[in-house]
Each structure stands twice: as C-alpha cells, then as structure tokens.
Design a protein around this nucleic acid. Sequence first.
DNA 1: CCGGATTGTAATCCGTTCGTAACCCCGCAT
DNA 2: ATGCGGGGTTACGAACGGATTACAATCCGG
Lengths: 232, 232
Amino acid sequence: MKKIALIEDDQDLYSLIQYNLEKEGFAVVGLQTGKGALELCRRERPDLIILDIMLPDSSGLEICKALRADPDLGGVPVLFLTARASEADRIVGLELGANDYIVKPFFVRELIARIKVHFRGPAPVSKLLKCAGLELDRARCRVHLAGQEVSLTATEFRLLEFLMSRPGVVFSRQQLLDAVWGHDRAVTDRTVDVYVLRLRQKIENEGGPAFIRSVRGFGYSFNSEAPREQLQ
Amino acid sequence: MKKIALIEDDQDLYSLIQYNLEKEGFAVVGLQTGKGALELCRRERPDLIILDIMLPDSSGLEICKALRADPDLGGVPVLFLTARASEADRIVGLELGANDYIVKPFFVRELIARIKVHFRGPAPVSKLLKCAGLELDRARCRVHLAGQEVSLTATEFRLLEFLMSRPGVVFSRQQLLDAVWGHDRAVTDRTVDVYVLRLRQKIENEGGPAFIRSVRGFGYSFNSEAPREQLQ
DNA sequence: CCGGATTGTAATCCGTTCGTAACCCCGCAT
DNA sequence: ATGCGGGGTTACGAACGGATTACAATCCGG
C-alpha cells in the first residue's frame, strides 16, 4: 500500500483529501502546518508528498527545496496544491523540483488520477508472460522453463512471444508469417512448421505440457487450457 | 538533444509551440493530423509526445491507447493538450496512460516547465551503480573495476551508464544510438558493436565476469544475472 | 599548429541461424 | 486397401549477425 504525506493547513480541505485518498487505498500521514513537515517525511518515508504552498508558518516552496536536497527524499514525487495560479508561480513551483502543480480549486478525482500517474511508474516493467512453468520475459529476451533458462533464437523467441501473448487464439500460418516475420518478407508458410518444431523441441521436454497446439486445417495456437499432461 | 513529437491540428498553436520548444533546444517533429501520428512516433522515436485530443481525423485518446500498447513506445511520456476541461475528460485522459493533462488555454512557459519535469528524469536512481566488482560513479564520471580505476572515454562511459542503469533489459542498436548518441546524430548502428568491444576490452579482464551480454538478433544488455565467473 | 586521443566507418572473418525442399507419417475418405 | 491432404521431421546451402581489425576524420590540449 502506498503512503502519501499531506501538508495542507486548511482543515476542511485536509479532511476531504484524506478521506478520498484513504477511500482509494492509500495510507495518509500529514500535518496542518509546515514546521514539522520535513521531519515527518524523513520519519515516515512517504511514496509521494502533497504540498500546499501557502502555509501559515513556512512556505511549501522552502519545504520542497529541502526535500530535494535530502538524499533519501530527493526522489519522492512532490505535488503542489495551491491557490497561486499565475504563470510565474507555476513555473517557479515546477522548476523547484515539483512533479506536478495543481491549482485550487481542483477536482478531487483529478488529483487522485494525477497521483496514480506517478505510481504507474516510468518503469517500463518487464512484461512477463507466464504459463505453467513457462516464463517469457520480453524486456530481457529470455525464456525459462521450470526455472531453467532455455536459449531461443530471435525468430523462435518472437514466434513464442506472439503465440503466448494471445493464448488460445488459433493463427493461420499466413497470420503468423505476417506478425512474426513481417508482411514484406516472402517466406513459405511451411517455414512456420519448422519453427514450431524447433520450439517444441526446446520447450516441450517430454512428459511436460504441450504448449503449442496444432489445429489441423487452421494453424497453431498457444495452449491456454491448463496445458497439463496430455492424456491420450 | 531531446526530441518531442507534437500532434496538434491548429496551425497557429502548432507554430507557437514548435517555436518555443525549439527555442528551448528541443528537436520537434510533428503532424497537424492524427492519421500518421503512430507511424511518425514509431519512426522518429521521440522522447516525449504532445497530443491534442480533438483532431479532425482521429482522437488523441485513441492514439494514446495505441502508443501505450506499443512495446517500443509504451514508456514514452504522453502529454495531453486539449480544450476539454471537464472532470470526466481529465480523468479519462490521465487513466488512459497520459503523464500530464493540460487544458487550453495554457501558459506556454508552463508547458515548457512541465515538459522539463519529465526530462528531469523520473530516475531517483542512486549516483553509484554497482555490480560484481564494477562500480560506476555518475557524478564523478569514473569507473572502478575491483578497486582499480578504469579510464573510459565519454562515449564509452555513457554507453556503460545506460546499460548499467537498466540491468538485464535488452536494447537494440538503434535504441542505444538514440539514448547514448542522440537522435540527431547520424551514426551507423555497427558503431555500437565497436564500442561494446572497446568496453569489453576495458572492463572484462579475462577470467572475470561477462558484464555485457550480446543477444543475437536483438541487441545488447547489461548482465544482471549474477555475472560470476563463466564456468565452461 | 602539432600530436595524441577519440570517434565513426568499412571490410573481413566465422559461427549461427534461416528458409527451403524433400521425405515421412498419420488419419481420413473413397 | 489405397490415395490424399496436412502436419512432422530431417538435412543442407545461403544469408545473416556479431566480433574484430584497420583506418580516416575529428577533436583537443599544449
């Protein structure tokens, strides 16, 4: 569960935001003054900080500057929430290191949506395709079968990737050629057979599940139906 | 130099934004229609995409969805620029995968500031990248192997830094050229081979770990898998 | 302005991978 | 049985992709 620090002096607004954040499943820690904000963040290590700029005892801008200077908190997204709407204010806020600048009045649900943008992470999470002991890691271009790495060639990898990304769907040889080899390439459709064979030899160690299913007269598909031992 | 794709049908607004982006040192590629936007992005590989929602021939929302589904472009920040100001519109836009949602009319300098937020690097990455005796200090631009300093040229350093910052992820030669050399430079992709070789000669003293992995048909990656002595 | 370092390209070498053709095998319909 | 259509399997030459070397162009400090 993500933890959000909320620094906002207006009691009503504080409660409103807190209520909505908690409804969304976030943990909220916060203050209605600016004084202890830095210490709070150091102690609580929030995943994101919502900062009012005009606080009675100190400026949100100062707090932001201090946060950015802190080696432990420098990477935490800061989101300004303020009534100061002028172009100059916005630019100062953003250039000071804030990740977003929201002007009051604002829509609560937009605030939530913007918070979620930061948690979506710029991390192009390595998309893993998994099925019954078979794991394909797109980012790493690697395939593991029961924990053991299987070495595939580029074409084998792309073919398996395509089939695994649409489990159960049957593709004709021509469709596979278009998708994996490319429309422009002029390749015999029997080539697909050979690659399916090569894949099977590598990932279907005998006794194991039959991952690739031949559909007579139509083509091939990745076996989504709990590909346990084929009992024929 | 960062490259920005601008999809905006209004001619005046397009020119205004283009002028200001270029003044800030960004390279701008763009279209005034939505039709070829996806192809443009696939071809140009921008670092950020500014997208109008209401285009004459297609919807920016659709383009965004397609961008997010593309494995190569899914990680590129998308910034909506639109007159649709309702709460529902904003939420749809942000939840569709946009990284920011700016309502017209807007301040040009705020747009620039928000773009820079994305380039500040969402990377709260540590200044020191380490892996099995290899240490790269971003701030000092120095590399140590088993305590000994290794002297790298600027290009070698940037290439190693990029690879080490995303261990395990495989990058095509083109991606590496875009990231390390920059989009604008016209460089053969074979050049990457040469730099990988030079790096290997400097950091892979024989008998030691194999840090850079060649992935035939795909590209190169930094070896994250506990690159201990190769036992062959 | 010189000389070394750095950068990018071209050319070569070599093992791997690719794609095809040919053949085999199986199930099915006549 | 027999022929046929479609998939499985094998083998092989061609093409590709990556490593490596050599070299020209450019940068940069003295």
